[in-house]
Design a protein around this nucleic acid. Structure first.
Lengths: 215, 215
DNA sequence: TTTTATTTTTAGTTTTGTCTAAATTTAATT
DNA sequence: AATTAAATTTAGACAAAACTAAAAATAAAA
């Protein structure tokens, strides 16, 4: 598989999670910052390689083979993210771009040794699950902070929105994976929360609480 | 720079160390397993980018800019090799191929953080020097084992030939970087050496001794 | 149910990096 | 110095992955 093919497979995988019945051409083009016509071309190629099943005008789905490939790419991406944050000291808003490159390094032995070196992590720095060597994804039980009961203690396990702005906000407020969070009070009018994070009081908007996963 | 361009620059760098007056087309083609005509095409492009200076039929040399780029690629290659051996537990004959891919990952911040994580190593697992962030290469004082005096203790710091066969031989004999070596006796007829390596007696041919650097 | 709008596909180009085969230049030999 | 051999370059072509513009199919609206 070429890097380009891998990128298409990965994007189809992510879009499939939202629309499992078939991913449309334009959505893929949007994610890859390319044109719909280019997507059509590539779908023919991936279809010939039995990585996607594709019928004109009907959208694409991953085949069993394509699905497995996708999970291996996601596995690599997320393991490298863990490496970058845990071992090299990057902050979580900096790692995505670099991992986009590292995920295309070919050696299976490399990725399995990296996995062991990192202690077989089950989630990346954003809290997203890491498929194991066989492609099995351990489901992570998590709730949005906006939905948990008051006065119960949780710890932060991930983010829904991983945009740079949001991650930077979290950094600024010293909220990280593992931080202990307790909702002290909820404002009825606009759902603003008063929370205690690692012992510190903080007021956060519903929009923030709606993008933070806790467990 | 594309991956292909980087590979050309790297090869020209290595060949320049042997023939500093100008590297010829065929030699480059040989190293990259491509055709001379492809090399000519690429030389035009690299010349336009001011990475090499090139005159038809006269061979190429790296410009200042190309030389610096080459050292940065070599730096990345060798740092990744250290990572693979020291942190992931690969043996030194397995790392070259993987490092060939990793050396093309773009982020400068990544490579500097990796450097720090590894403790600013000055040599890779084969004993070859690692350029620092500015491109400065610390010269490693070393002699071939075939040329050292008898009964003096050295330690193994590198290999001249890093072919798989040779590296596997060293692995088998448990000779690694850092091993303590003392020449006990030298046979006048064929220069076969009797050596003591980490306390163990061993007989090695002149060909072996001629490919092993000590300090 | 037509008509209009949107989405998707086809057809024809472009760029990058490669190739083959022929032409040219440089080097080696007689 | 002329001829042969080797190395190098040009010319033209190709595959991959993208593009533009036009055509076709599907979805939405009147």
């Amino acid at each position: 598989m070429t890097i380009s093919e891998e990128n298409y497979i990965k994007v189809i995988y992510h879009l499939s999670l939202v629309s499992p019945k078939g991913v449309n051409t334009n959505a893929i083009a949007g994610m890859l910052d390319t044109k719909a016509s280019s997507v059509t071309d590539m779908m023919k190629k991936l279809s010939d390689k039995d990585l996607v099943s594709y019928q004109k005008y009907q959208g694409v789905t991953l085949t069993e083979k394509g699905f497995h490939s996708a999970k291996m790419i996601v596995r690599k991406h997320r393991l490298w993210e863990v490496f970058l944050v845990d071992k090299l000291g990057f902050s979580w808003d900096e790692v995505h771009e670099i991992a986009e490159e590292l995920e295309h390094i070919k050696s299976e032995q490399l990725i399995n040794k990296l996995d062991a070196f990192l202690g077989f992590p089950v989630a990346d720095p954003h809290g997203d699950p890491i498929p194991d060597a066989k492609g099995v994804i351990k489901k992570i039980e998590k709730q949005l902070l906006s939905e948990v009961e008051i006065n119960a203690a949780f710890h932060c396990v991930g983010v829904k929105d991983s945009s740079t702005d949001f991650l930077k906000y979290l950094d600024k407020q010293k909220i990280a994976l593992g931080s202990v969070v307790k909702v002290i009070d909820k404002e009825d009018f606009d759902d603003t929360l008063t929370v205690e994070i690692d012992g510190k009081r903080l007021t956060i908007s519903n929009k923030i609480a709606n993008n933070l996963y806790v467990q």
